[in-house]
């Protein structure tokens, strides 16, 4: 997200402090002095990670500090979920399974480790899915569960699951 604030010392700190207060994680801070220099404001872009549901809270705290938010950028893949799949993954077209998740557009398979077993015995794979929101993650997991049922694969989900 991009924040606009008055060009005064201390303002940057005023903008950053609420982010940690809501449990956010600052990834990058980018200054852009020229854009609205005439209006004596300092443009700052802050790239950050935020726990889900904290955005409203953060915006309110920023307003209290006199910081105005110009634009909220695109939300990126922040939810991660790793599971293990066992079955005849090759015979049942593993890449199709991955495609069906990627096709949702909002969740994607970002990591896949496949253990090659002896011929004709079931193989095991670890799959990591990332998504922007919890709801999208749930959708991706539901897809995977459906695929697993159709293709008779065993899914091992993490203890802290996406329900």
């Amino acid at each position: 997200m991009k924040l606009e604030m008055k060009d005064q010392p201390g303002q940057l700190v005023a903008a950053l402090q609420p982010i940690s207060a809501v449990g956010g994680n600052i990834i990058a801070v980018i200054h852009q002095r020229e854009t609205s220099a005439a209006a004596e404001t300092l443009d700052v872009q802050i790239v950050l990670e935020l726990p889900e549901g904290r955005l409203e809270n953060l915006l309110e705290l920023l307003r209290e500090q006199g910081v105005s938010v110009v634009r909220i950028g695109e939300e990126r893949l922040l939810y991660e979920y790793t599971l293990i799949v066992i079955g005849h993954l090759m015979h049942t077209d593993l890449s199709d399974t991955v495609d069906r998740i990627d096709r949702t557009g909002s969740a994607e398979v970002t990591d896949l480790s496949l253990a090659m077993p002896a011929i004709n015995s079931p193989s095991s794979a670890r799959i990591t899915i990332r998504s922007t929101t919890r709801a999208e993650m749930k959708k991706a997991i539901r897809i995977l569960r459906d695929v697993a049922e159709q293709k008779e694969l065993l899914i091992i989900e993490p203890l802290e699951d996406g329900r």
């Binding site: 790793t82 293990i84 066992i86 480790s113 253990a115 077993p117 095991s124 065993l154 091992i156 993490p158």
Partner: peptide, 22 residues
Amino acid sequence: RTGITLLTPDALRLAEDQDCTI
């Protein structure tokens, strides 16, 4: 209900790689 009869040593190793187990 899902049991443990289909679990493979590979699956346990894949979990182990991430400091996890099953």
